[in-house]
Design a protein around this nucleic acid. Structure first.
Length: 419
RNA sequence: GUGGCCGUAGCUCAAUGGUAGAGCUCCAGGUUGUGGUCCUGGCUGUUGCGGGUUCGAGUCCCGUCGGUCACCCCA
């Protein structure tokens, strides 16, 4: 029996990697004053259907009827749940809200590298603040986070754009607002599709707008309405990671202002995170119960896991962290079974002090026990036998061994450990 | 959802259409108090599944499921 396609078992090693990721997510969010929340993984299908996160995602819904015949769906993203919760409870909290979540999301789509049907998603949202400073905070959080994984300016870039900029541009050229979405979709694909195809689609959509004019406009992003945000990012010392790029539009329909994506600069991976400003979404999703401007981003664990593997510094940092979480710090070696009870009692004492302790559960050769200590990642091995109550304390890395009493051991354990 | 490639032991892989193998891992030993090496022995497969061609299929053909890559889209 295997897990369902696109779903994963987490063996201890996999879980350690996942723990590495989630602990960094939490640390980064907390450094920016964000607080964690969670919601149900199963929601009413209506939450996604009527109010709509934006087209495509609906076709990827894990949707069914529960035993009470309610139409339900596994959450494909966190934002609708967030909006629902904020709509109900926002009066309880001072604005702006800085909320983050780490939760499983589900999308029924064909899997490939970095894309699964069940994945962990990290979401950071700042609600109730309209200024570019809010945008800057969220983007800076994302950059700090990526840096904390060991990624540098040569590994990733934040590509930044603004839908409002396009909106003004299209209005200036007399494009009716109902054509706006269609045109943004064309612009979104401008890099990925052949020029001929783009020209065709453009002509079908508007008679006045030429591809050449669009390219001209895109070549000077610095002068646009992005300037205040770029200045905020400079103040925060992260400007070098941000590259204004008006070709970024993003598929989700609900973005109303800035949009951005974190891109890996090598390894052929997709965007590792994406987000933007969505000032109307809370209003729509909460049925008008709340109206809060918002900016946020999401990051999935599937792509990140691949990205971590591909960057040597990030990979070695991860390995170091995981090694420090080894299951055992001190292994008690029973050299003489006569002293098993004493050993077990000592193990309990040490465990109560907070140390991670292992010992062999059945009689084993001393050599084997040393092997087990090694495998479990122990720093110290303590040999207990005929000389009890004196013990031999051995530093496994240096093979240095000293004899000491129980009291001496407890006094010196901290220093022994950090030696 | 569309197309290409792949599917053999727990893992990595081998086997001109002719009796399914190796390395690693795991387990047990190398005699009774000292670990990453070494030596010996042991376990595991309806060759993803179902059909077909053939005297004979891991190998060829079809289907299916799973994996993977590209497209689409996205975390």
């Amino acid at each position: 029996m295997k897990p369902l396609p696109g779903f994963r078992d987490f063996l201890p090693n996999d879980y350690a990697r996942r723990d590495y990721i989630t602990s960094h997510w939490r640390d980064a969010a907390r450094r920016f004053g964000f607080v964690e929340f969670d919601g149900p993984m199963l929601e009413s299908a209506e939450l996604y259907e009527k109010k709509n996160s934006g087209g495509e995602i609906l076709t990827q819904l894990y949707q069914f009827h529960d035993r009470g015949d309610r139409p339900v769906a596994l959450r494909p993203e966190m934002t609708p749940t967030l909006a629902r919760m904020v709509g109900m409870h926002h009066r309880t909290f001072a604005k702006p809200l800085r909320w983050f979540s780490i939760g499983n999301c589900f999308r029924y789509e064909r899997q490939q590298r970095g894309r699964l049907r069940e994945f962990l998603q990290f979401n950071c949202d700042l609600l109730g603040e309209r200024s570019p400073a809010a945008d800057a905070e969220v983007i800076t959080l994302l950059i700090h986070l990526l840096k904390s994984f060991g990624f540098g300016p040569k590994d990733f870039v934040i590509r930044l754009s603004d839908r409002l900029v396009w909106q003004h541009f299209l209005e200036q050229h007399g494009i009716p607002s109902d054509k706006m979405t269609e045109l943004l979709a064309i612009i979104d694909k401008i890099e990925r599709e052949p020029e001929e195809r783009t020209k065709e689609k453009l002509a079908a959509c508007s008679s006045v707008l030429s591809l050449r004019r669009i390219h001209e406009f895109m070549s000077n992003p610095e002068d646009s309405a992005l300037a205040p945000l770029l200045s905020e990012l400079s103040s925060r010392g992260v400007r070098e990671y941000v590259q204004p790029d008006l070709s970024i539009v993003r598929g989700l329909a609900y973005y109303t202002g800035i949009v951005f994506e974190a891109f890996a600069l090598h390894g052929g991976l997709r965007a590792i995170a994406g987000g933007g400003r969505y000032d109307n979404l809370i209003y729509h999703l909460s049925d008008g119960a709340a109206s809060l401007p918002a900016v946020g981003f999401g990051m999935g664990d599937a792509v990140l896991l691949e990205f971590l593997k591909s960057v040597p510094l990030a990979a070695s940092q991860e390995e170091k962290y995981i090694n420090a979480q080894r299951p055992c710090q001190i292994y008690l070696i029973i050299a003489d079974e006569t002293y098993r009870n004493e050993t077990v009692a000592l193990a309990s004492e040490l465990r109560e002090k907070g140390w991670r302790i292992l010992f062999s559960l059945s009689p084993e050769r001393v050599g084997k026990q040393f092997g087990a200590a090694q495998d479990a990642g122990a720093t110290l091995a303590i040999v207990i036998g005929a000389e009890w109550p004196v013990m031999k304390v051995k530093q496994l890395s240096t093979r240095e061994e000293t004899e000491m009493s129980r009291d001496a051991l407890f006094q010196r354990l901290d220093s022994l450990f950090h030696a």
